[in-house]
C-alpha cells in the first residue's frame, strides 16, 4: 500500500530525513519510535504534504500512485489521513459543518453523491460513539476551546468519519491522561478492520499497550535503524535509546 524508498527531506534547509526506507501493507499497524529530533514528525508532515518540508530525494508510492506528486487535498481524498500532533482551531466553523464539507469532498473525488444533512447526521451519530463524543462537541467550532484530550479525540473522530485507508497518528498520545488515552486507543482499535493501515508515531511504549502494533521501528538521524515486533518497544522502554544510538554512531564512524 505504502512504499517509501530512500526518502530524503529537509526543512528550512536542514536535512532531517536521510534516506528512509519503509513499507506498509494493507491492515498493518506500524509503530515508529525514536528519540527527540530523529525525524518522526517530519515523516508525518512529508507524507501529508506540508509545504514547508522539502523532499530532496527518494520516492513514496501509495496504492501505485506517486504520493509526492499529489497536493495535500488529493492525498487526503486518496485515503491518507493525518491525526495532527497539534490540531488546529477554526473559529466560527462548527465541527459538524467542517466534517460534512470534508466528507463530501472525499465522496466527490470517488464519484459518490454528497450526503445530505440527514444521512450525514446518522453516520455522525454512529461514529461519535467510537470516541465517546457528546453531541455538543459536534456543534462547537473546530477544536476551539477544546482541552488537549478533546482535540485528540476529535482527530480520531474525524478519522472515523473520513474512513482513510492509511492513518498516520502523530504523537496522538502526547498530553493525554490515562482515561483519554484509553478512549483514543479504543477508537483506533475499532477502526482496525484488516484492511486499514496505521502508522503510529509515539515516544512512549504506553500507547502500544493499547494499540498493539505488528511492527515497531526506531527512527534515528532520519533513518530507520532498527525494526522488530512489539517486543522491541518493551526493550526500548527498559533500556532507552542510548544503546541504539551507540550502535548506529559506531557504524557511521567506522
Amino acid at each position: 500500500m505504502l512504499t517509501i524508498k530512500d526518502l530524503k527531506a529537509s526543512v528550512e534547509e536542514k536535512q532531517i530525513l536521510n534516506g528512509l526506507n519503509f513499507e506498509v501493507k494493507p491492515g498493518e499497524v506500524h509503530a515508529i519510535m525514536g528519540p527527540n529530533g530523529s525525524g518522526k514528525s517530519t515523516l508525518a508532515s512529508v507524507l501529508a504534504g506540508r509545504e514547508e518540508y522539502e523532499v530532496t530525494g527518494g520516492e513514496v508510492m501509495f496504492n501505485g500512485e506517486d504520493l509526492l506528486e499529489m497536493n495535500p487535498e488529493d492525498r487526503a481524498r486518496a485515503g491518507v489521513f493525518l491525526a495532527f500532533q497539534y490540531p488546529v482551531e477554526i473559529p466560527g466553523v462548527s465541527n459538524a459543518n467542517f466534517l460534512k464539507t470534508a466528507v463530501n469532498e472525499v465522496r466527490k473525488s470517488k464519484g459518490l453523491e454528497a450526503l445530505d444533512s440527514k444521512q450525514f447526521l446518522k453516520i455522525m451519530q454512529e461514529k461519535m460513539k467510537l470516541v465517546e463524543m457528546d453531541k455538543a462537541m459536534t456543534q462547537r467550532s473546530v477544536n476551539e476551546g477544546f482541552s488537549g484530550g478533546e482535540k485528540k479525540r476529535n482527530e480520531i473522530f474525524q478519522m472515523a468519519m473520513l474512513e482513510p485507508s492509511l492513518a498516520i497518528l502523530d504523537e496522538t498520545d502526547s498530553g493525554l491522561d490515562i482515561d483519554a488515552l484509553r478512549i483514543v486507543a479504543n477508537g483506533v482499535n475499532a477502526l482496525r478492520d484488516g484492511k486499514r493501515s496505521f502508522i503510529v508515531i509515539t515516544h512512549y511504549q504506553r500507547l502500544l499497550d493499547y494499540i498493539v502494533p505488528d511492527f515497531v521501528h526506531v527512527l534515528y538521524k532520519g533513518r530507520i535503524v532498527k525494526s522488530g515486533t512489539k517486543d522491541l518497544a518493551l526493550e526500548l522502554e527498559e533500556k532507552g535509546y542510548d544503546w541504539i544510538k551507540e550502535e548506529v554512531d559506531a557504524t557511521l564512524n567506522a
Partner: peptide, 10 residues
C-alpha cells in the same frame, strides 16, 4: 488552518 483543511480533503 489551510493545511488542516487540505489534509481533510478541502
Amino acid at each position: 488552518q489551510i493545511f488542516y483543511c487540505n489534509q481533510r480533503g478541502i
